[in-house]
Amino acid sequence: MQKKRINIKVNWAPWTVLVVGVLLWQGLVSFNIVPRFLLPSPADTVTAFYTDFPLLLQNMWVTLAETVIGLLIGILLGIFLAIIMDRFEFLYRAVYPLLVISQTVPTVAIAPLLILWLGYGMLPKIVLIIVTTFFPVAVEMLTGFRATDPDLLQLMATMGAKRLKVLWFVKLPQSLDHFFASLRIAVTYAVISAVVAEWVGGNDGLGVYMTRVMKAYAFDKMFAVIVLITILSLLLMMLVNGLQHWLEPWKRVEKQ
């Protein structure tokens, strides 16, 4: 019983800091310590959020669709790469160093290129998300595969298990922790990449909305869209956590 109560208990400290921060911010603007045209108050932000909500929502669906599609393809590509790098040592030695180096190329730098090549639609955004998300997944999954207990692999060998069976029964499930660690990184990367690609060029999406309100000097709307993007990332993160909880039932036992 004691343990249950601890699990449900909410940590109020960050909420308190958040509320105090928002109140301070409101105070700074309300008492004209910072001019309103430079910094909208929290109340202004909420009003902008409310009045522009249909438009925000419409753009959000576009960004969300790009994020989810790009993320899914990126994850599959990452897992696939990890599997073949684990299977073929020469591929690991040939591809892995290049992969690591390729990650030093900044996302922002290739976004304009992709727009030029692939146009203003969803495709360049999805491609950019794939490029940024497959890497953490591939690296973490490979680490997970390689962390398999050699004795366990030996045992599987004595039971006559073939490679694919070892992958399915041992390597994939035991790499789930690594997978979810990489997924948390990939989710934030994906949202950021979508917005950045939309900045560079596009017709719809939260990034496009952002550049528009920026050009109009509508700071309150800027803040509103930033809040929305944050909420979107948080919700996706919670989804990942929920998925992990659901897919790793044995963890619940270990905690008891």
């Binding site: 599987m156 006559g160 298990a161 029964f169 041992v170 035991q174 789930l176």
Partner: peptide, 24 residues
Amino acid sequence: YMLQKDLLLPFRTIAGNVTLPLLL
């Protein structure tokens, strides 16, 4: 073949572990 370590897969139930040679 069995080692000192039980080498049960932590992510499979006891039934899942025990049936492993049959599933393989």
